[in-house]
Simulated scan of single mutants.
Amino acid sequence: MDYEYPFENDWSMEEIVTVISFYNCIEKAYEEGIARDELMDGYREFKKVVDSKALEKQLDQRFKEASSYSIYETMKQAKENDYIRMKL
């Protein structure tokens, strides 16, 4: 991967690590597939840092522009499937 992860400048190192861990889950969903439980665990931790829906949408847009991977579409699939394997 040759892109930068979007994050906020006022986040602590721990918060950045948490959000990047969730981005890794999204990448895994596209690149090899991921179990819903693993994805949801990452999302719950992500939401502790990103507690605003507006910020979540902004980060999703920035992440999608950088990587072509959609947080929204991946989480939508997680509502319907036990195993998520996304396609571009």
Rank of each mutant, 00 (worst) to 15 (best):
E27K: 01
E27F: 01
E27S: 07
E27A: 05
E27D: 08
K28F: 02
A29H: 06
A29F: 03
Y30K: 00
Y30G: 02
Y30M: 00
E31T: 03
E32P: 08
E32I: 00
E32Y: 09
E32A: 11
G33P: 12
G33M: 10
G33N: 15
G33H: 07
I34Y: 00
I34G: 03
I34L: 05
I34P: 03
A35R: 02
A35N: 01
A35H: 03
A35G: 11
A35W: 02
R36D: 04
R36Y: 06
R36G: 05
D37G: 06
D37K: 10
L39I: 02
L39F: 01
L39Y: 02
M40I: 15
D41N: 14
D41H: 02
D41V: 04
G42C: 13
R44W: 13
E45R: 15
F46V: 07
F46Y: 06
K47H: 13
K48E: 11
K48Y: 07
K48S: 11
V49C: 15
V50F: 06
V50M: 05
V50S: 04
V50Y: 00
D51F: 15
D51C: 13
S52H: 04
S52P: 14
S52I: 03
S52E: 13
S52N: 14
K53Q: 09
K53H: 15
K53E: 15
K53F: 11
K53T: 10
A54R: 09
A54N: 11
L55R: 13
L55V: 14
E56T: 07
E56G: 08
E56Y: 02
K57P: 10
K57H: 14
K57F: 08
Q58C: 10
Q58D: 14
Q58H: 12
L59S: 05
L59N: 02
Q61S: 12
R62V: 11
R62F: 13
R62C: 08
R62P: 06
F63Q: 01
F63W: 02
K64E: 07
E65F: 11
E65R: 10
E65N: 11
E65T: 08
A66N: 06
A66C: 09
S67Q: 03
S67F: 04
Y69R: 06
Y69T: 09
Y69G: 01
S70N: 05
S70E: 01
S70L: 05
I71Q: 01
Y72L: 13
Y72C: 12
Y72T: 12
Y72M: 10
E73L: 06
E73V: 10
E73D: 11
E73S: 15
E73I: 08
T74H: 00
T74P: 05
T74F: 00
M75D: 04
M75N: 09
M75P: 06
